Amino acid sequence: MTMTFITAEQINQITKPHQLIDKLQNAFASDIETPLRQHYDIPNPDSSRETTLLMMPSWQVGKDIGVKLVSVVPESYKYKLPSIKGVYVLIDAKTGQVKAMLDAPSLTAKRTAAASALASRFLSDPNSKSLLMIGTGTLSSELIEAHCAVRPIKQVYVWGRNHEKAHQIVKRTAHLSVNVEAVSNLDDAIGKVDIISCATMSITPLIKGSLLKPGQHLDMVGAYRPDMREADDQCLLRSRIVVDNYQGALKETGDLAIPLKNNVIKKEKIEADLFELCREQKHFERNNSDITFFKSVGHALEDLAAAQLIVEKLRESA
């Protein structure tokens, strides 16, 4: 077996949102085993924030083993580099041979966006036609495309602290059959849309719960550390909350860890995770007036499933 390195360009060409969303839904209902990921914050003397090292293993007995090694450097823009860098290793579980190595940032972006779209299948209004994208990083265009794959989105607004970067996202999503425009006033945009997707490294809340309207769905993807927040307390108090996985979401993100610590909400406020929804252990029925809140912290199962799909599609096209 020859080991293949799969580049970001190949991943972007091969991966289709609908296929990956379906793959993740099946994976969350499968027998894939995933221990808690290892998360280390390492001092970075040339930055105001630590460098984060993530090691994320997952395996399917008798089939594949995968592990992702990722570094997160929030201020890497100073070096004109992306904030997330790393590699994914896919190993044959029977023979121990390395089947493929994949570019981790592009793999992560694709699977993260697909997980958000999967959650939207369960939680958002099926007739959602408008989306607000908060954040202008690598994930933004992926999230827009994934949400458009599962809901009849016609209008997308993009907001970021750097308005020029918001315009870049507009250009990057020009191939989609939707109207995408950059906006400068976040508060005004919040009340205009059916779905709000947020992917930032903010340490202070960007979304004010007082501005939310009944029927909205919040897709919270950023704030990956316990000291980061994208949504204020009112967002949580007004919403029905679902997470991708309980184990990580309850302690890794400030969006939940801080209000839980401050007794703003109780653990019982979180109604389900994607494992329970995909395995049909819980059924989520929304009312028209419900505000739904999905918090994603990432799960190694998603990486393994995405890597398996990419390797499969690459071999089909060879």
Rank of each mutant, 00 (worst) to 15 (best):
K85S: 13
T52P: 04
L123Q: 06
T95K: 10
L69S: 13
P74T: 01
S116P: 06
S120Y: 03
P57V: 00
S83V: 12
V70F: 03
G86A: 03
P57A: 02
A117L: 02
S76H: 13
A104S: 13
V72W: 00
T51L: 13
L53N: 00
K94D: 14
L54E: 01
Y77I: 12
T95F: 10
R121D: 14
Y77M: 10
L54A: 00
S124G: 11
L69A: 14
S76A: 14
T108F: 04
V98D: 03
L102F: 02
L118W: 11
K110E: 15
A109I: 07
L90N: 01
L90A: 02
G66C: 10
V72L: 06
A115G: 02
A117E: 04
A119T: 08
L53K: 01
Q60N: 13
M101Y: 06
A113G: 15
T112E: 01
V67I: 15
E75T: 04
L102E: 06
Y77T: 13
K85Y: 09
A109K: 02
T51H: 01
A117P: 08
V72H: 00
V72R: 00
I65Y: 12
P74A: 05
F122K: 07
F122L: 13
E50A: 15
D64K: 12
D64A: 12
S83E: 10
V67A: 13
L118E: 05
P105C: 07
Q97P: 01
T112N: 01
A113D: 03
P57M: 03
V87S: 08
D103A: 07
K110H: 15
S83K: 12
V72T: 05
R111I: 03
K94S: 12
K68P: 07
M55P: 02
G86Q: 01
I84M: 06
T108L: 06
P57H: 04
I91R: 08
S83F: 01
Y79K: 11
Q97R: 15
V87F: 06
L53P: 06
A93F: 08
K110S: 15
P105A: 05
F122A: 08
T95L: 08
F122D: 09
L102W: 05
Y77E: 15
A109Q: 05
A93P: 07
S58W: 06
L53R: 02
T108V: 08
K68D: 05
A100M: 03
A93Q: 01
I65Q: 10
A93C: 09
D64N: 15
W59V: 04
K63D: 14
K110V: 10
P82Q: 09
K94T: 12
S71N: 12
V87K: 07
K99F: 06
V89K: 08
D103N: 15
I65S: 10
S116D: 13
V73M: 13
P74Y: 00
G62Y: 14
D92W: 08
S106C: 11
